[in-house]
Computed example of a mutant assay.
Amino acid sequence: MKEKRATSLIFAIMVLDLLGAGILLPILPYYVRAYRTDALTVGLLSLAFSAAQFLSSPALGAVSDRIGRRPVLLWSIFGSAAGYFLFGLAGSLWMLFAARLLDGVTGGNISTAQAYLADISAPGDRARNFGLVGAAWGIGFVAGPALGGALAGFGLAAPAFGAGVCSLLTFAAAYLFLPESLPSARRAQSGVTLAAVNPFRQLAWGIRHASLAPVLAAVFLFHFPMAGLQSNFSLFTLEKFAFTPSDNAWAFVFLGVMVSLLQGLILRRFVKDFGKTAYLYLGLWIMAAGYVVLAFSPNVAILYVSMVLTALGSSLAAPTLTALVSQCVPEDQQGAALGVNQSVLSLTRVAGPVWAGWLFDVWGPPAPYWTAVFWLGCALLLISARRGR
């Protein structure tokens, strides 16, 4: 019962946290267009957040292995609130970048929540419980974009202030109700050294780890094109279908509903009935089909079909990859491994939006999506090779 209560609490906190992130999604490209109109600048804004998150995530993961998950989670959530409020107050492009950098430096929210789930879950239940992260993303991207689209009617800065309020509510909920998940006896006993908080050293540790390295590489290849999609989907629909911020808000709402239903209900109910690697294979194939349909969608109806496919593929593959990362290390390295995993995700959000923005400007709006099939194929080959050893 205690485990179920803690799981419910961390899920509620993730939903509130991702609600704040979801609020900004439909309006971000429109906000940037007040200063620059190219897709690459939108990608560079995503790069600023993700580069800062890459530098900080291993440190936050290592610290959480030593002092516990709760204080690190509280720090991360408060930093997100400050970043959102600064974004809303920004009156220039450089202030937008500064706001995203601040949010990124403190951006250990989800990786710390994943480590929390790993602490309270039996190894066999981790894939099922990591599915809660996807469900939280789904709910955040249902209510968040809808709220962001509504708030945009009061000005483009209003969604940023709304996101800041959501983060403050998340902080309050975590401070008041969330217990610590990592007992002192299970914490890493060594002090936090410069080597432990060096993101490149931590990343190198993950790369040298024989069983972890191929999984981390597959994580990168899977999320790289997805990061590009998340950063310029609103630009794609604006260029191809003349979507307004409200239209994009409803598109993200639809995608969020699909992810929430798939990961919150189907994956958690049926994951034990399937082999994990087969589950991942199926997700990669469906995801590839979704990208192709998205790239060449002739109308809005087919666009929505592509979103169903990408949501299904992601719901099958993403939590399984996270579970594989968790299973590669012992209990006292969960925070470090998931921190490195978050660093890899941050690298995809550094490279993916810039790559997608460049392709969008040079090769045309569909290019970031049909080229995604190549990256997913590489991930499939890596996982197949790992299984064969």
Rank of each mutant, 00 (worst) to 15 (best):
L294A: 09
L294F: 14
A295I: 13
P298E: 08
P298F: 04
N299L: 04
N299P: 02
N299G: 11
V300L: 11
V300Y: 02
A301N: 05
A301V: 15
L303P: 01
L303M: 13
Y304F: 15
Y304T: 03
V305R: 10
V305A: 14
S306R: 10
S306C: 03
M307Y: 12
V308L: 15
L309Q: 11
L309N: 00
L309T: 08
A311R: 04
G313Y: 04
S314D: 02
S315A: 14
S315Y: 01
A317Q: 04
A317V: 11
A318P: 00
T320Q: 10
L321Y: 04
T322A: 13
T322P: 00
C328L: 03
V329M: 06
V329P: 08
V329Q: 11
V329S: 07
P330T: 15
P330W: 12
P330M: 12
E331W: 00
E331T: 12
E331Y: 07
D332G: 04
Q333R: 15
Q333G: 09
Q334A: 08
Q334N: 10
A336D: 06
A337I: 06
A337H: 06
L338R: 06
G339W: 02
V340S: 04
V340K: 03
N341G: 00
N341Q: 14
N341Y: 14
N341M: 11
N341A: 01
S343V: 05
S343P: 01
V344R: 02
L347F: 07
